[in-house]
Design a protein around this nucleic acid. Structure first.
Length: 666
RNA sequence: GCGCCCGUAGCUCAGCUGGAUAGAGCGUUGGCCUCCGAAGCCAAAGGCCGCAGGUUCGAAUCCUGCCGGGCGCGCCA
């Protein structure tokens, strides 16, 4: 069964063709009116036709209202004086169809989709900047799965990068420690936190004498060549930190399918292979003159691909892919990775089982050793999303450009840079973290303080979660003194996750988030816990209905009688268009599916967040006006209970898309 | 200099492919727990939607220019 909107649209388009003999009906919207008094759906077709028909919208609307006849699922059509067509749904059958599962969402074609997110440098603990990335990426994967796509979630691990080299330098040069020492530290400390502090000390150490950067270069070289202690220490650190990141993310209900290691891209000659392809197609060339002489470079095109971009001096801009010393840059390695994801490289990784995640889902990792024969197929995606902040726009554009140059325009089109703005700190929060800013400095005049892993300035994800859990735990304890400790902790953790994940999703992705602890710690108003609370209330009602009267949800639905549907129609109310009525809750709840469609189309999760919040608000208002358990008239009570059941189901699904669980009680 | 993003209520933000009186949270003020849980509900106050043009029957929304702020433009990643 198609959505009501679709049916209405097609029926009206048909009526326009018949009544006016218009072959091409102009596009028109079936939208939601601004308030209940204007019906359940509104159609703008009369405005679109006004010009071609040379008639007032009002007259057209009136003629159409008369010509439409019976529409499926619609009980009444009204032509508004201003030209809108306002439609009233057949409310009882609308709710019944949904409760009985007769309305199936139209699924998108099954395109294998890869979402890459998180990709934190494995040399320190995760901070809130990383959290925004992971929360967006995980929600993207959930939303795509909801709409029917098979999704593979990848987490890219830059195990051979400068940041890893830096932390190795920290252990060796600053702490004079060996691999065994590092192992011991990992066993006896909070290792990711230890590295967090050490990393900022290394940064200071470099700043103390720029000659020390040669130490970094040497470490990086050894790391890339798998040489000696450096490589061994690096591998150990990376493994420990990656596991710490995974543990942190698991607390937030974020899981992955595959860890892609940069080291394997090198060892398995992915880059060498991609390089051959790039050279053969002329996508890269050896620069022989100027400051980039000796480098293999890629010309940077304007977004249309027509004219070449130029720099300040008017020269064509070129991006170095292979340095004059023969070492490939990050961009080169990433091009190879993207080719592989799309099945264009002609090579594959080998795979090992890395761990089992909380719900038993296996986590695989790439390897250069023998492959586990049990590994499922990875890669070969039709569509890929790279969740990376907007600062990397240029590099992402280069990847698309490379695909186009190599004759893969479709793949370029299907490679999406899921871009979002960064997370910064409010001055108050930076101060709370012990960061001092000189009063008259340039930094003090800025509206925010930039997070910097390099300087050790940022809110660690685990610290934030711990704070939230502590606060939630005390709130839960106040309201539920009978809870055993374990239950209180479990619920507090669910509330903390809801608070932080909702906070990360409620802003549109083009908005820079100025993170403020005080604000993030709130459980009231537009927050995750508010949403959970609404569902918990609905759960309690249905639970009590079962306890007191032995009625299950199926019993309630089964006993609904359309002949006695006055409650949902609104016939019993003084104001039939009460914006806080049962019907308002049901209609709003039914908009989840179209909201998800919109989210997939726009990749904007604030839409989903606002929808869920608005739905919870509508329910709360209804809840305060109408009693359910204490309603004496049995038909009213049944319809209300049925509406509550539908609301609960829909908001629970919406929360699940945001990675938020519903506590038993809170 | 070039590119991208932001500018809507005191603060933080929604406003979908243009459409009906511009919305929410926080904060402020005032109400509501013998009744399904007050992490809640109701009400009030608060807005030349940065500015100026343009397109349109209709612009917070689309186009152009300007102003203010942020980010990016490396043989770093």
């Amino acid at each position: 069964m198609l959505s009501v909107q679709r049916q209405v649209h097609d029926a009206i388009a048909g009526a326009v063709r018949r009544h006016y003999g218009v072959a091409d009906v102009p596009p028109f919207a079936v939208e939601v009116p601004p308030n209940r008094a204007l019906g359940d759906l509104a159609v703008t077709v009369a405005f679109q036709l006004a010009r071609t028909l040379r008639k007032a919208p009002r007259a057209i609307a009136q003629e159409l209202a008369g010509a439409l006849g019976d529409l499926p699922g619609i009980s009444r059509v009204v032509a508004a004086p201003n030209g809108y067509l306002n439609l009233y749904l057949d409310r009882p059958s609308f709710l019944l169809a949904r409760l009985r599962g007769d309305v199936a969402a139209a699924l998108a074609p099954l395109e294998k989709t890869i979402v890459e997110h998180t990709a934190i440098n494995p040399n320190k603990a995760a901070h809130i900047g990383h959290l925004r990335n992971a929360a967006l990426g995980d929600t993207l994967a959930r939303v795509l799965r909801f709409s029917g796509a098979p999704v593979e979630v990848q987490n890219y691990i830059d195990d051979l990068g400068v940041q890893v080299a830096d932390i190795i330098v920290g252990f060796r040069e600053l702490e004079h420690q060996t691999l065994d020492d590092v192992r011991r530290i990992a066993e006896t400390t909070r290792f990711d936190y230890h590295c967090w502090d050490l990393y900022s000390r290394v940064t200071e150490w470099y700043e103390g004498d720029s000659a020390r950067l040669t130490v970094r270069a040497a470490a990086l070289h050894d790391l890339e060549h798998g040489a000696g202690d450096t490589a061994a220490i690096g591998a150990f650190i990376v493994d420990r930190i990656v596991r710490a990141h995974l543990k942190t993310m698991a607390r937030l209900n974020i899981e992955y399918d595959l860890l892609t290691y940069e080291g394997d891209i090198l060892r398995l000659q992915f880059w060498a292979h991609a390089f051959e392809i790039l050279k053969a197609q002329g996508a890269v060339f050896l620069q022989t003159e100027g400051r980039l002489a000796g480098c293999w470079v890629m010309r940077i095109e304007e977004d249309g691909g027509e004219s070449a971009a130029t720099d300040e001096s008017g020269d064509a801009r070129e991006k170095v892919i292979v340095r004059s010393n023969g070492v490939v840059t990050y961009v080169g390695k990433d091009i190879a990775n993207q080719f592989w994801k799309l099945g264009l490289l002609g090579r594959d990784f080998r795979y090992r089982l890395f761990s089992r995640q909380v719900d038993g889902r296996p986590l695989w990792a790439t390897t250069s050793e023998a492959s586990d024969p049990a590994a499922p197929p990875f890669g070969h995606a039709r569509r890929i999303y790279n969740v990376i902040d907007s600062r990397q726009m240029y590099l992402q554009a280069l990847l698309s450009q490379a695909l186009r140059t190599l004759g893969h325009p479709q793949e370029a089109e299907n490679s999406v840079h899921f871009s979002y703005e960064m997370v910064a700190l409010s001055h108050a929060t930076a101060r709370e973290l012990g960061y001092r800013i000189a009063p008259e400095s340039e930094e003090a005049r800025k509206p925010f303080v930039e997070v910097s892993g390099r300087r050790g300035l940022g809110v660690k994800v685990d610290d934030l979660l711990d704070l939230l859990i502590e606060k939630a735990s005390s709130e839960v304890g106040k309201r539920n003194p009978e809870f055993p400790d374990a239950e209180r902790r479990r619920v507090a953790a669910q509330i903390a996750v809801a608070a932080i994940r909702y906070f990360m999703l409620k802003y549109s992705r083009s908005k820079l988030i100025v993170f403020d602890i005080e604000e993030a710690l709130s459980f009231e108003g537009e927050t995750g816990p508010y949403l959970q609370y609404a569902v918990v209330r609905a759960n309690n009602i249905l639970l009590k209905l079962h306890e007191r009267e032995g009625l299950t949800e199926a019993d309630v639905v089964g006993a609904l009688d359309a002949a006695n549907a006055g409650e949902i129609i609104g016939a019993n109310q003084v104001d039939q268009d009460d914006p806080h009525s049962l019907w308002a809750v049901v209609l709003e709840a039914s908009r989840l599916e179209e909201t998800v469609d919109q989210v997939v189309r726009t990749l904007e999760f604030s839409v989903l967040a606002k929808f869920a919040f608005g739905l919870a608000q509508t329910f709360n208002a209804f809840y305060h006006r109408y009693s359910i358990l204490n309603e004496e008239q049995v038909e009213k009570k049944r319809w209300r209970a049925a509406g509550v059941a539908y609301f609960r189901a829909q908001l629970t699904r919406a929360l699940d898309l945001m990675g938020i669980e519903v506590p038993s009680r809170m």
